[in-house]
Design a protein around this nucleic acid. Structure first.
Lengths: 152, 152
DNA sequence: AGTAGAAGGTCAAAAAAAGTCAAAGTAAAG
DNA sequence: CTTTACTTTGACTTTTTTTGACCTTCTACT
């Protein structure tokens, strides 16, 4: 008794397997094939192809648009990064953010070079400090850069 | 399944590579080859061969008219970086910032890895968009990360 | 010099995709 | 049988590309 979402999920998993971890789809086309609302595809993506499960989604709108699903190889490093990403929810202050980067480095999860870049990115100098919105941005920056690293 | 614009872009890049950084085309002729409106060529030029990415466009109208695309060579690496950093003054929109990163990568000044990380850092997803303050933060992030990379 | 025709430029509307969000519907748990 | 969690649907938004009508600049020819 699998739901439509499950079927779409299975279908995508198959595709991803066949194409060795990376696949590109047309959202509307796929929705059409499965006879559902396009936004259902997003639902499936949002609930089943998350970072926690080791996927990254990229997309482009407009003519020739697409949705790309990338399966990330889950070694222990990525596993660890993934967990840290999951914890990045509440707005981080500069010091806290820096602490996380240090931790990543100390545990050999990112290189020295990565560390230098990340620290510069999230620094007070770059983003500023004190209001919640800035800290929010900082958290997003850290989160997205980690996702990017995770993908590489 | 890339868009027409992508195809034209690729074609032009090829040409530019083949002719060592400078190429001259007939706009209408090219549009005809690709079976599109002439203004589409301008669209491609405007969105993909921008100054941030290190291209200069020259053209002449009238009989014997042409469009010339010139890829600007960066002199010594450090010089180039310094200049790019110096130019990071006015608030950059996501696309502009991304253009700069692309250029740095295309010119072998940063690695693919750096590029992916920087793009994630300055993305709309990380910082947001539309108000001047956000764009300012974006510019600072780019500036500081580049400074960090080149330890200036 | 004056003008026709040949290029290229501009701008905005239409079209093509994808994203978001919340309401309505179902299934599962208690 | 009620409450909660998960799915499905649809209306509306945003982004990107494509098309076309009209404008400007140049060259060549009389």
């Amino acid at each position: 008794m699998s739901s439509l979402s499950d079927k779409i999920e299975n279908y995508l998993r198959e595709l991803i397997k066949r194409y060795e971890g990376e696949v590109e789809i047309k959202r509307n086309r796929l929705a059409d094939d499965f006879n559902c609302a396009p936004s259902q595809i997003n639902y499936v993506l949002d609930t089943r192809f998350t970072v926690e499960r080791g996927y990254i989604i990229e997309s482009r709108r407009g003519g020739g648009g697409f949705v790309r699903i990338i399966k990330v190889k889950l070694n222990s490093k990525n596993e660890a990064i993934k967990n840290i990403i999951k914890q990045l929810e509440s707005p981080l202050q500069p010091k806290e953010a820096k602490g996380i980067v240090k931790r990543l480095f100390d545990n050999n999860l990112i290189s020295q070079r990565d560390r230098i870049i990340l620290e510069a990115a999230i620094s007070k100098k770059s983003i500023g400090f004190n209001d919640d919105e800035k800290n929010n941005i900082r958290t997003q920056v850290l989160k997205n850069t980690l996702k990017a690293i995770f993908k590489i």
